[in-house]
Simulated scan of single mutants.
Amino acid sequence: MGFLLSKSLDANMKKQQEFMLHNARLQMERQMVMQNQMRERQMAMQMAWSREFLKYYGTFFTLASLGLTAGAVKARRPGLVAPLVPLSFVLAYQLDTGYGTLIQRMRGEAESIMDSERDRLEMPHGMPTFDSVEKERRARSSLGSLLER
Rank of each mutant, 00 (worst) to 15 (best):
K55D: 08
L5N: 13
K14M: 09
L121S: 07
M106S: 09
G98Q: 00
V81S: 01
E18F: 11
A72C: 02
K55C: 12
R140F: 15
T129D: 03
L84A: 03
S8F: 04
R149I: 15
S6I: 06
F3W: 08
A72P: 00
S112G: 11
M123V: 06
M45Q: 11
V81R: 00
L146D: 15
L80N: 00
L54K: 01
A70M: 10
S142R: 08
L66A: 12
M28W: 13
Q46N: 09
G144H: 02
V90Y: 01
M20E: 12
F19L: 08
G2Q: 03
Q46T: 10
T59M: 06
Q46I: 07
M28E: 15
A64F: 01
R137H: 13
L143V: 10
A44C: 10
Q46C: 11
A11V: 03
L121R: 03
L21R: 06
Q37G: 15
G100H: 03
R107P: 02
L26W: 02
E136G: 03
L146W: 09
L26I: 10
E148T: 14
G98P: 01
M20H: 07
S132I: 11
P128A: 04
M47E: 04
V81F: 01
P86W: 00
S50M: 01
Y56T: 12
M45F: 12
Q37A: 15
L5S: 11
N23Y: 01
K74R: 07
M34G: 12
G144L: 02
T69R: 00
M13N: 08
K55H: 06
L87D: 02
S112A: 15
Q35R: 06
T101K: 01
F60G: 10
R137K: 10
E40L: 14
Q37I: 11
R77A: 01
H125F: 12
L26G: 05
Y99M: 13
K15E: 14
S116C: 10
E134M: 11
F53I: 13
G100Y: 00
L4Q: 14
N36W: 02
G144S: 05
L4W: 07
M43R: 08
L21W: 00
Q31K: 12
L87H: 00
A24F: 03
R76K: 05
D10E: 14
R51C: 07
Q17N: 15
E40R: 09
S141Q: 10
S8E: 07
D96Q: 09
R25S: 11
R118F: 06
R107V: 08
H22N: 08
N12Y: 05
Q27W: 04
F89Y: 15
V73A: 09
Q42W: 04
L147A: 14
E148S: 15
A24D: 09
D115I: 06
T69Q: 01
M1P: 10
R76F: 03
R76Y: 01
P83V: 02
L66M: 09
A70Q: 04
F89S: 14
E122A: 10
R30I: 13
S145M: 08
V85H: 00
E29V: 12
S112P: 07
L63R: 05
M47S: 06
R120Q: 13
F3G: 15
P128D: 04
R140W: 11
R41Y: 08
E111N: 14
F61W: 02
A11K: 04
Y57L: 05
